[in-house]
Amino acid sequence: MAQVNIIHMFEQAAHEVSGKKLTGLTKDTVIAKLGLDSVAIMELVAHFEEKLNVRLPDEDLAKVQTIADLAQVVKNRAPKGTEVTW
């Protein structure tokens, strides 16, 4: 069964698209507070999609505020049996 750690993947993606080293993220971290601009955020979403081979719909992403929300969207779209943790 595949395992996905959202926080780990998020930190990796943020570093790749914006060069930012994020630390101390929790499931309740509000993504909008992380200092990433809107283009970086979209690139970050692309990173998730590529790594997980899923499509995250814009209308679901629009409502995402925290890491936990993002995990839920990923969970809904990931192949059956994928374990999504943070």
């Binding site: 909008a32 814009d58 629009a62 505020q65």
Partner: peptide
């Protein structure tokens, strides 16, 4: 424009 991803929906 449509709502942005992971954005602040309130300010949109």
């Amino acid at each position: 424009y449509p709502p942005l991803s992971l954005g602040k929906l309130d300010s949109y």
